[in-house]
């Protein structure tokens, strides 16, 4: 069964096209990453899934049905702009958010306490939210999103504002939830996180889908003739090679994309004759980050 089906959805604000003809679907228990630069239409798409704003055309089905207000109780949504009542106490706040998802006060309070313990915040339960550090507020926000055990989680930039320790912690929690059958949508521009976590990705820019599929499929389709070269010396000459499509040069490391009618071997031979010291040559698959920049860059041009 598909937890979510988005079909040919479009949304315009006056003349600005926020989302154009977007379609994707999520099998139950999937981790899905919505990728794209700022202003690509990710937030609009997520708000449409939540029925916070209505699409101009197209249809969205949640749990196999058209939207009903009761679906909101099965969804946890953490928007990019975090929001909590600053003057409310931590546990009261979580209890309130749980009740807003249809939980009973007692149940929401109990589950909230359990989560606070799991996150090491049990001693902050009676503190007011604005007395906490940003990272802690972020955790409280997360607990508020999951306290009702949603079937579908929608998280905008889950790792923003977190230090490396907490990023790892958050990642583990998400994977844990996924293992227990929760379907998760991540919206992020951090490609390496998306690459490691997600089953499927969908890259959108300027409201349109550029590519989508499983991480492996996407990578396979974009790794032809990509080479990583570790070197020392001046490699500026490589821009003049007729077999090279594009270069991303970091100074002592470069990612080279070759033209379709050539192969890494030809590049290897030519580099051997140049006045640089090659200490690493790898016909590598591209990272999502490279695909991202290549795709978006191509769209810009």
């Amino acid at each position: 069964m598909h937890t979510l089906q988005v079909e040919n959805v479009s949304k315009n604000y006056d003349k600005f096209k926020a989302v154009t003809d977007v379609s994707f679907s999520l099998p139950e228990g999937n981790m899905f990453a919505l990728l794209g630069p700022n202003g690509a239409g990710k937030t609009t798409t997520m708000r449409m899934i939540m029925n916070i704003i209505l699409p101009d055309s197209g249809s969205i089905k949640l749990f196999g049905e058209t939207f009903q207000e009761s679906h909101k109780n099965r969804i946890g949504y953490m928007p990019e702009e975090r929001g909590l009542y600053g003057k409310m106490k931590v546990l009261d706040q979580i209890q309130f958010l749980g009740e807003m998802k249809g939980m009973s006060p007692a149940q929401a309070k109990k589950t909230g306490q359990e989560w606070l313990e799991k996150f090491g915040l049990a001693d902050r339960a009676k503190k007011k939210v604005h007395e906490l550090s940003k990272g802690m507020q972020q955790k409280v926000q997360f607990i508020g999103t999951v306290v009702h055990s949603p079937d579908l989680m929608i998280i905008d930039e889950p790792f923003s504002g977190l230090d490396p320790v907490n990023t790892k912690f958050m990642k583990d929690v998400l994977l844990d939830m996924k293992r227990q059958g929760t379907t998760i949508i991540l919206s992020t521009h951090l490609m390496d996180q998306a690459e490691k976590l997600s089953d499927e990705i969908c890259l959108i820019n300027k409201g349109e889908i550029l590519l989508q599929g499983t991480v492996n499929d996407v990578k396979r389709a974009h790794t032809n003739n990509a080479v990583t070269v570790g070197y020392s010396g001046d490699a500026a000459f490589i821009n003049n090679y007729d077999i090279v499509e594009s270069v991303n040069d970091y100074g002592n490391y470069m990612e080279v994309r070759l033209k379709d009618d050539t192969s890494p071997g030809k590049l290897f031979k030519r580099l051997a004759g140049e006045n640089i010291d090659v200490h690493r040559f790898e016909a590598a698959e591209m990272t999502l980050n490279e695909i991202f920049i290549q795709q978006i860059g191509g769209a810009e041009a």
Partner: peptide
């Protein structure tokens, strides 16, 4: 206050 603290969007994901 709900708008500036951005909790409005969280609330809208729970109720209309």
């Amino acid at each position: 206050e709900e708008k500036t603290s951005r909790i409005m969007e969280v609330l809208l994901s729970s109720g209309n």
